[in-house]
């Protein structure tokens, strides 16, 4: 196997097409033969992932009204009645625009929600299906996941609440921040290996905050 410089852009290598050839992994004949061939049914039970191109989206659909009711039942306790995080510490799901990710617009901190930040709508379905509701993951039917996905996208003005959400409707959604991501340019800083007289002066700009660091049993939660 060749080694590649991980500190440079690995993605560049991937996109640049410097790929290992399939000859390295011919695999027509298995050498060891350990394990078994999984059945289609076995794979289907675990193969829950969804891609932005729609690969993996199951059959089914859900209405805005069903999504609203399901959201109230399964999601609102943490994410808030209006999916804005409820003023608590759980992620807000609705609101904002990519514009509000810029420091000049929102100096406090970026307003990150599904609508303002997430680049692909497929991720909403994927994540709800695999990990939500928190503490009862993979319990919702595909219709229910479509319904909640449609509700959240509609609340973000990214889906018509009169239309059911299904595979075709989800694939058609273009997220506002889809072009908001750039590939990793690191190493993005170059610190010269200076040994002598590197600075004329050094000043302390901040000190650790009192009362922030946990002590005692608090650190065991």
């Amino acid at each position: 196997m060749f080694k590649f410089p991980v500190n440079k852009s690995v993605l560049g290598l991937v996109l640049g097409g410097v790929l290992m050839t399939s000859a390295a992994y011919a695999g027509d004949e298995m050498k060891y033969g350990f394990g078994v061939k999984p059945s289609d049914k076995e794979i289907a039970g675990w193969d829950i992932d969804i891609r932005p191109d729609g690969q993996g989206l199951p059959a089914g659909s859900g209405s805005y009204e069903d999504g609203e009711a399901l959201y109230a039942e399964h999601c609102a306790a943490c994410h808030g009645d209006f999916a804005d995080g409820g003023g608590g510490r759980y992620p807000p799901l609705v609101g904002g625009t990519p514009n509000e990710l810029a420091q000049s617009v929102r100096p406090g901190q970026p307003h990150k929600t599904i609508g303002s930040y997430w680049p692909y709508a497929s991720t909403v379905f994927d994540y709800i299906k695999r990990a939500m509701p928190f503490g009862n993951a993979q319990s919702l039917t595909d219709d229910e996941v479509y319904a909640i996905t449609g509700f959240l996208l509609a609340e973000n003005d990214l889906h018509d609440s009169d239309e059911p959400m299904d595979a075709e409707a989800l694939k058609a959604v273009v997220m506002p921040n889809v072009d908001g991501f750039v590939d990793d340019p690191r190493p993005d800083v170059k610190n010269p290996h200076c040994m002598k007289d590197c600075f004329k002066s050094v000043e302390i700009t901040s000190k650790a905050t009192l009362g922030v660091t946990p002590t005692g049993e608090e650190a065991l939660r």
Partner: peptide, 9 residues
């Protein structure tokens, strides 16, 4: 407001 993704290393 732009974000880096796949920042693995």
């Amino acid at each position: 407001g732009k974000s880096r993704r796949f920042t693995w290393s």
